[in-house]
Design a protein around this nucleic acid. Sequence first.
DNA 1: CCGGGCTTGTGACTCTATTCACAAGCGACC
DNA 2: GGTCGCTTGTGAATAGAGTCACAAGCCCGG
Lengths: 256, 256
Amino acid sequence: MRKRPIPEATVARLPVYLRSLLALAEERRTLTVSSEELAGMAGVNAAKVRKDLSYLGSYGTRGVGYDVEYLLYQITRELGLTQDLHAAIVGVGNLGRALASFKGFAERGFRIAALFDVDETVIGTEVAGLTVRDLDELKEFAAEEPLAIGIIATPADGAQEVAERLIDAGVKSILTFASSVVKVPPDIVVRKVDLSIELQILSFYQQRREAISSAREANRVLEGELPGAAGLRTGAAEHAASFDERRAGTLHSDRR
Amino acid sequence: MRKRPIPEATVARLPVYLRSLLALAEERRTLTVSSEELAGMAGVNAAKVRKDLSYLGSYGTRGVGYDVEYLLYQITRELGLTQDLHAAIVGVGNLGRALASFKGFAERGFRIAALFDVDETVIGTEVAGLTVRDLDELKEFAAEEPLAIGIIATPADGAQEVAERLIDAGVKSILTFASSVVKVPPDIVVRKVDLSIELQILSFYQQRREAISSAREANRVLEGELPGAAGLRTGAAEHAASFDERRAGTLHSDRR
DNA sequence: CCGGGCTTGTGACTCTATTCACAAGCGACC
DNA sequence: GGTCGCTTGTGAATAGAGTCACAAGCCCGG
């Protein structure tokens, strides 16, 4: 276990622990927290919490737990949240606007430093206290006020070009909401949030569930209950059973 | 490989393939597509495409590729997108509004059937062509017009209660944007999109990158290059050096 | 109807992540 | 100062995902 390479999956959970710890720190009831308790708050299992935290170092005390304040500080530091990072949003449509006004960013030390768009009817207007700039000004803006993060909230077809412009302006971290694949050089980190994909994933499991319940129905029919519904949607039965058995209560978020 | 349990990771990629296939189908240039080509469009590797598709069945033709239309249909069916699913958005703030107007949902057959909120100043107003309803009406609404999916776009503190109400109204699939852990019974599927967590993850890798490059700089200084820069950023260099030492060797290998 | 070129489907391997289970270690109380 | 209860930290086991590499199989041209 000795030192570093913090697994990607762990990195994705650190912010969740961070939020839980902040909640604990606020209600100053507890100075210390056990992995069990933290796991409960974060919605994961306790062994995972311990393993995750162990990648940061040995910050707990056996028999006692983790010092809330200290752990808070360590996670904050590890996530690089001690410095305020500046971000720019490109694409000031509905989503871009919502993101610009989103309070959650500032709470974690992210500052939306500028908004950009290409639409002349939008450029110059004020959104969430910022004047929307022309995307062409991106590079010079970034030269003055370095941008750590670029947020792409444009339609799919503009996303690749925007990404390239951001990279050209020195941005190394990109969060894209565009429903298109954005290709970048290996030293650039991209994260993608695709709302319609999320729904499609839900749809898959929803459909599965329906297949299962109608399979159950079919089974009941076979067993002599529910005599009316015979014949509907057979064939799903076996498939359903294995599903049910395999993944009773799982599912997370990921992406990763 | 025989039949089913489609891995979660595969499910998450199917919508990406779907989008690529739709693009191919539109420009009616190709009736068939190779895993290689599809992989290029989807931004993944070809073996993964083949393995993913093989979970659906043997829909390709060796020496030829996959029939675009047929594959399109199979993925659509597997994702349950043949039926239009109805969704409700709870929480009509900035984000809720943006989601309500988001075109991407309809494109994949999702219909935003209703908007709910608890804020009386919002209830009754019209957003994206829908009248915002009182959250108290959720259950009766769902009784009339079954909702497959609930989208939570409320502040964190309301999310758990909203989730419970959705479940009580018969919703089995939930997409939450609230930055809080939502706990649900095992038969409910929840997906969570947390914007501020995404930025925190980017921050982590950003910070790591900075640590690496300043470590490189420190090394160059030690080796006698860059004599001019001595003294600058000492704090960072020192931190970087110890960082470097602790994880020597891993720095370069774990680049993605 | 045979051979060559291409592309799938998949076993085998590797890597990452999760879970288990327990020894090590801390604090409190006698 | 010893022992008891509790909680961490982590090896070992397991599960899941990604990658490799190649045999199987299809199409086409001769």
